[in-house]
Design a protein around this nucleic acid. Structure first.
Lengths: 228, 228
DNA sequence: GTAAAAACCTGATAAATATCATATTTTAAA
DNA sequence: TTTAAAATATGATATTTATCAGGTTTTTAC
């Protein structure tokens, strides 16, 4: 069993505020897992009963709409925590998480986290700050979804993906999303997403080969995203 | 200066977890204010520097989109706290709050709240739970905005308004929103909102006179909201 | 390597929604 | 009370987006 204290990933999230003893206890009760691409970390309606700490890989977090369409509400990557919300509100998850590539995760049981939240105020405040930050992001997303066109949302999403996942040596954005995933991020039909991507390619704003997408003209995308 | 300890409103939010001494200190540093209909509690980009506790009245919380359109992200009423998010993340507000009717509020300065957050774990956990609950609501709203039609969102909003603000003796929903406000809640053009409301009236699903709206057929609205 | 499945793409069309124009009603102000 | 302003309403039209239908390409499984 690997030691949480020596885990570099911990530095990227609220777990960095835990003491040596707290980390030791966590090492003893956590479980490490490999999750293959396409596998489900948890589903809507499930009791999660703990928190996932993402050591490697990326997953999509989504929710089914009443109309039977899937909306991706966030993309979670190395260093992120996942599942605190359900844990804190003590409810079943309203979201589903699916691995976009092979992942390495640690699962920390609920009781351990709750204990730390009650004992370690620095940790609690850090979780609180994360939650506040997520709430701000969520509010902004609500406004975008409600007020922006699909084209604007696509432009914004491409910029956001490049910022969040950065680019590899070829200049491609470091995440592999299917056209359907992209459509489910921006909230549109898959065909619409495909069409708009093709338009952007034709206009030399982006280029792509399969799932590898490269932004050629960031300025143009920024103008598009803000509506000018 | 009124005593927080005797204030009934406190029972409805996280402040109920404060001790007698904490409440006494709060009473001494808080300020009470009357805010007239249409007045701004705080604007986008402002440092809020504290938390509002709503003693009476309702306000709309909104954000400007890049396209120059306003999106209402929540409606805050008696008993709610407002402004914790900005306070916790220590940022200027990304939202604007405007009174929908005459309001009575208490403003508790930042330092006082921060002190309580650091000293009183029950209080912190309660704020954390509130935040988790808001986050869930926000995620659901993202999905609705992205995946539902304007008609579905209107149906859902009407149901939600009735649940949240309940009805008066005439059966009208206990909140006065302009057609523009309603449009800004569901994320559509004012004309579209007006048109759809008229449709619902014609179909005897609702009736209204000016801003007084009454739901006549809740089942029909529920079906509409979920897409059947 | 091949077959089947899945993903991707494009066109045609329909449906939803925004926009513009203008009329009416309600509210606020003088 | 009268007038001006704001809010509400409705029609006509343009734009955006979804849906359906049919392709091609890529991936997966054997």
């Amino acid at each position: 069993m690997s030691k949480c204290e020596q885990c570099i990933v911990r530095q990227f999230n609220s777990l960095k505020h835990l003491s040596k003893e707290e980390l030791l206890r966590m090492s003893n009760c956590k479980t490490s897992k490999i999750i293959k691409k396409g596998e489900i970390l948890f589903d809507e309606g499930e009791h999660i009963n703990g928190v996932f700490c993402i050591k490697d890989g990326v997953c999509k977090v989504s929710k089914m709409s009443d109309n039977g369409r899937n909306q991706i509400v966030s993309l979670i990557q190395k260093g992120d925590l996942l599942g605190e919300r359900s844990l804190i509100s003590d409810e079943v998850s309203n979201l589903k998480a699916v691995a976009l590539n092979d992942m390495e995760i640690c699962f920390i049981p609920k009781d351990e986290i709750i204990r730390d939240l009650q004992k370690n105020n620095n940790f609690t405040m850090s979780v609180l700050k994360d939650m506040a930050s997520s709430l701000k992001t969520a509010d902004n997303l609500i406004v975008d979804m409600a007020q922006k066109t699909v084209k604007q949302r696509l432009a914004e999403t491409l910029l956001h993906l490049e910022t969040k996942f950065s680019t590899n040596t070829d200049g491609n954005i470091n995440i592999q999303l299917s056209r359907e995933d992209i459509a489910n991020v921006i909230g549109t039909a898959t065909e619409s997403a495909i069409r708009l991507l093709s338009d952007l390619k034709k206009k030399k704003v982006i280029e792509f080969k399969g799932k590898d997408i490269k932004i050629l003209n960031r300025i143009a995308l920024e103008k598009m995203a803000t509506g000018f």
